[in-house]
Design a binder for these strands. Structure first.
Lengths: 217, 217
DNA sequence: AGGTTCCGTTAGAAGCTATCACGAAACCCC
DNA sequence: GGGGTTTCGTGATAGCTTCTAACGGAACCT
């Protein structure tokens, strides 16, 4: 993943242990959710005693923060990769869905219930911007003149979204609805709110995507 | 709230203490989220010692389950009250938004990140059905013929949604998009994902609602 | 090889959930 | 109103957690 390049053997080892800690943490989160993440359990699983992990992470919160960072990076990379291979909005949508289904708890780590006190670190904002930028690029690439909505004119005001991306407000409006609608379907699906209702969530997702792509008044 | 009617004084007292426990629990959840809910802290806040609470709730999980139940009941009542006072889809949307903004953590308790192991108790399904029913009623009350979509024909199949509600599949499709789209905007807003983007989430919500209500091909 | 830096350990404090056994208070019934 | 029963709240205890601190030893760099 990261640059594990030419370093001292100490740094190599350190990075390797850090990576294994995060891997075990991901396993625990995937199977039992964030609240069940236990540093002690991770340590024991790696064959060492609890406090040893504090050499690598200042505490549980910093480990989780690092996992949040990785999740953001993973989604940003997935989006960028899809975009680089010529994916349009539909391609991004499917990339998003696949990424979310691959590890629901990773999705919720970014878009799930926030902890009131906690604030994401600074650099995640950069990743979020990167995600939004590729989404905006795909929206402007459509270059299909959409009529200005009441909301898009509102967006005209102070446009400090996405570092001043050169997209028309209508494109930003579309990007936002793309985000919120797909998140609406995805999060409810991943949370299991559709189970027992007797329909295929994938088709609802597809229906929302179709509506997003359909040109209309 | 519930029927605290003619009971023995013991049951009166018991119900009162249970209510206060839940109130303190709600305060903790509202300010620090579910993971910070501590039975010990609740007990100390009420002037009694930790294990006393186990006379009223079997454990932390049962208390949370009860809070989930209350949250469902509260939303179902809010929806029913709005519907009874003649609210249409827009009215339900605003009722939902007000209810969510009044206590974001209560909203997330229902629609937030699920704990992989945990499964909501049986009777919450009934409340969820009740919510869906009022939503479906409002959708069918529109009685505006929408063209059958690919998804609505898919819904035609096994229709065991909402206890066999007598609504056309197009109405159910609309109800589902109502749910997913508004949840998409609301959850991202409540989670703070729009902060710093320089637009008013209420207007995005309104835009989505407008799109939901606009009759179109 | 010597000196420093880093790693992992054990011990311990403070917090939590949850169980148990006990005393005491409140209730119900006669 | 007194006696028996039920219920409540307590302190003690076990086991878990995060996290700090002090110590021994290994690995590294010069």
């Amino acid at each position: 993943m990261g640059d594990t390049g030419a370093q001292t053997p100490r740094e190599r080892y350190r990075a390797q242990v850090q990576a294994e800690i995060k891997e075990r943490a991901w396993e625990q989160i995937a199977t039992a959710g964030v609240p069940a993440l236990s540093l002690n359990a991770v340590a024991k699983q790696m064959g060492m005693s609890g406090p040893a992990l504090y050499r690598y992470f200042a505490g549980r919160d910093e480990l989780i923060t690092e996992l949040v960072r990785d999740a953001y990076r993973s989604l940003a990379d997935t989006f960028r990769a899809a975009s680089d291979t010529g994916a349009d909005l539909a391609g991004l949508a499917h990339a998003l869905r696949d990424w979310a289904l691959a590890d629901p708890q990773r999705y919720f780590l970014i878009y799930g219930t926030p902890v009131p006190g906690y604030h994401a670190p600074e650099d995640t904002a950069g990743l979020a911007d990167q995600i939004m930028t590729t989404l905006l690029d795909a929206c402007t690439a459509l270059a299909e003149d959409r009529p200005a909505t009441a909301f898009s004119t509102h967006l005209e005001g102070d446009r400090h979204w996405a570092e001043g991306h050169p997209a028309p407000p209508t494109a930003l409006h579309r990007a936002l609805t793309f985000w919120t609608r797909l998140h609406g379907v995805l999060s409810l699906e991943l949370a299991g709110h559709f189970t027992g209702m007797g329909f295929d969530p994938a088709l609802l997702f597809a229906a929302e995507l179709d509506d997003l792509l359909s040109p209309r008044a």
